[in-house]
Amino acid sequence: MQLAAPSGLLSLGLFLVAMALLALLGGGFWLGYRVKMNESPRPRPEEQPKLPPEGPVHEVRENREPEDVPQIQKGERPLTPYELTNMQTRTSSSTTRPRWSKGSSGSFGGGGLGAH
């Protein structure tokens, strides 16, 4: 019977756990406040970026084509993928935009008939 009797020890344990959680939560807020106070201040309106004198910058549309893959001579060892990195592109001489083939939607599962 004594084991089944309610004890104040369980209530005290739950109270101490709740207080520990509240202390952790308060410590988190305190630490966040300290970190924010150590950050640099926000820029003032006069420090904000301004447009260049010639106005906003517009996008440039151009076709790009890759540089050619280096050719190896017969009998030399093949190039590894590590030797083919940082391939550059150049402006294409063609000004026409590449289009999808006729009758194709250009995307997988787009519902078109596909290239026949």
Rank of each mutant, 00 (worst) to 15 (best):
108 F>A: 09
99 R>E: 14
33 Y>C: 07
29 F>G: 14
68 D>H: 13
68 D>C: 02
10 L>R: 11
6 P>C: 00
62 E>F: 04
40 S>A: 12
19 M>C: 14
84 L>G: 01
7 S>Y: 02
46 E>D: 11
26 G>D: 14
109 G>E: 08
18 A>P: 05
37 M>G: 07
4 A>P: 00
24 L>I: 15
49 P>F: 05
72 I>D: 01
74 K>E: 14
91 T>K: 13
96 T>Y: 11
113 L>Y: 09
50 K>N: 05
77 R>Q: 08
103 G>K: 03
103 G>L: 04
83 E>Q: 11
59 E>A: 09
96 T>G: 05
103 G>M: 03
4 A>V: 06
91 T>R: 15
62 E>C: 06
94 S>R: 12
60 V>Q: 06
100 W>S: 08
99 R>V: 11
72 I>A: 07
78 P>M: 01
63 N>Y: 02
44 R>Q: 15
12 L>I: 10
86 N>S: 09
106 G>I: 03
6 P>E: 05
18 A>M: 13
90 R>Q: 11
74 K>W: 10
75 G>F: 03
66 P>Y: 01
101 S>I: 12
6 P>I: 00
96 T>F: 10
95 T>K: 04
36 K>H: 12
94 S>N: 14
101 S>C: 14
33 Y>V: 02
68 D>A: 13
51 L>I: 02
50 K>W: 03
4 A>F: 08
75 G>E: 04
100 W>L: 09
53 P>W: 00
